[in-house]
Design a protein around this nucleic acid. Structure first.
Lengths: 110, 110
DNA sequence: TGACAATACATAAGACTTCTATATATATTT
DNA sequence: AAATATATATAGAAGTCTTATGTATTGTCA
């Protein structure tokens, strides 16, 4: 598990990318997928995830779909066209940021 | 310039690494060095840098040295032994975080 | 069948980091 | 003489995430 600060600013990017890849997902599924794909190194907390999802929805990047699974409600999130565009630009920005940081922190080798 | 959020959590790492590399530096020098080395892509603001330096000092990772340049005061910061240890571990953590993120955001190619 | 863990949603309060704006003062360039 | 660069610093605000908590259903194991 990484120090809390590092993850800041990357949560939205992670969520958007996962949705772009998987079509539609629900909150709990996202936390599990991230945990699984990072071998537990990144674990999203619900207190961070849900506000973030709601914010992305309010911004028009996501839409929701409510499905009843037995007596339980499940809320699926998926990207809007606007969300797709944002995802691409967020990923680009992150990639560029990483390469800048790598250069800054390791000027001799990269 | 990157979105503000991305930088969060990396400022301390940047500062520590620069000090490890350059021996001792003063605040303004740090902002200029980062700007120069990243071709303006990362620009530290004073409002972020000074509180961060003070915090690192309070934690015993940095020590200060005040020097008079003419009538102007200049405050040099340098790493303590504890600061050196922290720097190494921060850099390691960051490298690991980056590789996890790259895997997560681009599972096909990396 | 009873208890516990996993699934699934969500919010409130607070911590922490960083930004914007502001203040102060000297040195250098035009 | 004015503007810009150098140099430190703080206050207030914004934003993100954590911790803690709450609710309810479903599955598993003893």
């Amino acid at each position: 598990m990484y120090s809390k600060e590092l993850l800041k600013g990357t949560l939205q990017t992670i969520v958007l990318k996962l949705l772009a890849e998987n079509g539609r997902m629900y909150g709990y599924e996202i936390t599990q997928k991230v945990k699984e794909q990072t071998e537990g190194k990144i674990q999203l907390t619900e207190g961070a995830l849900y506000p973030s999802l709601h914010k992305l929805e309010a911004e028009g990047l996501l839409v929701t779909e409510t499905v009843n699974i037995g007596k339980r409600i499940r809320k699926y999130y998926s990207l809007t066209p606007k969300g797709n565009v944002q995802t691409a630009s967020k990923l680009e920005e992150f990639a560029s940021f990483i390469s800048t940081m790598q250069f800054l922190l390791n000027p001799k080798t990269s």
